[in-house]
Simulated assay, not measured.
Amino acid sequence: MPELPEVEVVRRGLEAHVLDGVFEDVEVLHPRANRGQDVPLADLLVGARITAVRRRGKYLWLDLGEDALYVHLGMSGQMLIGPTSSPHVRIRARVSGRDLNFVDQRTFGRWLYTPQVAGVPVPVAHIARDPLEADFDRVATARLIRRKRSAIKAVLLNQEVVSGIGNIYADEALWQAGIAPTRRASSLLQREAVALLDAAEEVMRRALAEGGTSFDSLYVNVNGESGYFSRSLNAYGREGEPCRRCGTPLRRIVVGGRSSHYCSECQH
């Protein structure tokens, strides 16, 4: 699943093209792309105006007033503006004269028309704030992290603790903060936990500036272009390569069922 920078790139692209647009037509081409919806999506969306394009963590939605169109990108979801020849179009929409296509090769993603609670769609209501939100409380989040007894890598991936951080940016933030992924979260000092959240924010802002991280054609922005932050990664996917701080070959281990890349010399 795309992480925060990739979803924010998509959000900004949609905002530039469909903000204040009105749905004129919607066609669901694959039932999984609108699973959980009892009423035909066209009946719900046609005539609705997009008043904002929002995101929390990895989760994206089009604000329609009291309700929202929740967009879950899954592993391969793409929101493409304009005509496309992709054989994996799952939903076609027309928004104020523009084509908006939901392309999803693996069909794990979906669109869902849903009410909002406190300004977020129901499926996102349990998700914690992310480090790029203006009202993100890093001190309180650091305290919450330190109450967990799991490995810090697993805690960073818990979207109910802090959202937006996935496997790539967890490895990058831990490397930048000099913290081993296996270290118990409860062993961190408050200043270490705050520094780790600062590192996560910095890494994700740098990734956002480079269009996100693309390893294949499954993640692209609304114009079909890939991000190139993969060239700047310091830890993720660099097993056996020298640490850019100390030269020690990076190791790959499994933490909480997820591959983790780190330096055994300068991450403690």
Rank of each mutant, 00 (worst) to 15 (best):
G119R: 06
Q190G: 13
Y219M: 09
L197C: 12
L197M: 11
N158L: 08
L218Y: 03
A125K: 15
R244C: 10
R149D: 02
S186K: 14
E202C: 13
A199D: 14
A173V: 04
R238S: 01
A185V: 01
R149V: 00
V155I: 00
G164H: 04
G212K: 09
C246M: 05
I165Y: 01
I179N: 03
G211S: 06
K153F: 01
A151H: 09
S226N: 09
E201Y: 06
I165G: 08
L144M: 10
R183P: 11
Y219T: 10
I127S: 13
R183D: 08
L197Y: 03
E160F: 00
Y219A: 06
P123A: 09
L208R: 12
S230F: 01
Q176F: 03
E172P: 14
V124S: 14
V155D: 05
V162A: 07
P123K: 12
T213Y: 04
R147A: 07
Q159W: 02
L188Q: 11
A173K: 10
A209M: 02
E241Q: 14
F215D: 09
V155N: 06
S187V: 02
G119L: 06
L189W: 06
V124A: 14
K153Q: 06
Y228S: 14
H126W: 13
T213H: 08
A207N: 06
A151L: 03
R206T: 04
L144C: 08
D198K: 13
H126A: 15
S230G: 05
G237D: 08
I152V: 09
K153G: 06
V155P: 10
V122C: 07
I145F: 00
R231I: 01
E225Y: 01
E160V: 05
L188K: 12
V222H: 05
R183V: 05
R183M: 05
A170D: 11
R129K: 15
V222N: 08
V203M: 12
R138L: 04
E160N: 11
A134Q: 12
D130P: 09
V162P: 12
R238E: 01
R191D: 13
S230L: 02
A140Y: 00
E202T: 15
P123C: 10
L132I: 02
G211F: 02
E202S: 15
P121E: 10
G164T: 02
L157V: 03
S226Q: 12
A154G: 07
T141K: 05
Y228M: 10
A170M: 11
I145R: 02
V220L: 07
G119D: 08
R231Y: 04
D216F: 00
C243W: 01
G164N: 07
D171E: 07
I165N: 08
Q159H: 12
P121V: 02
V194W: 03
G166I: 05
Y169R: 15
A128I: 08
P242K: 03
L197R: 11
R183Y: 03
L174E: 13
Q176P: 07
D137I: 03
L156I: 01
R138N: 04
P121S: 12
L157S: 09
R183T: 07
V161D: 13
N167R: 11
S150A: 15
D135H: 10
V122G: 11
A125T: 14
L197K: 13
L189N: 14
V155A: 03
T182R: 15
N158T: 10
C243M: 04
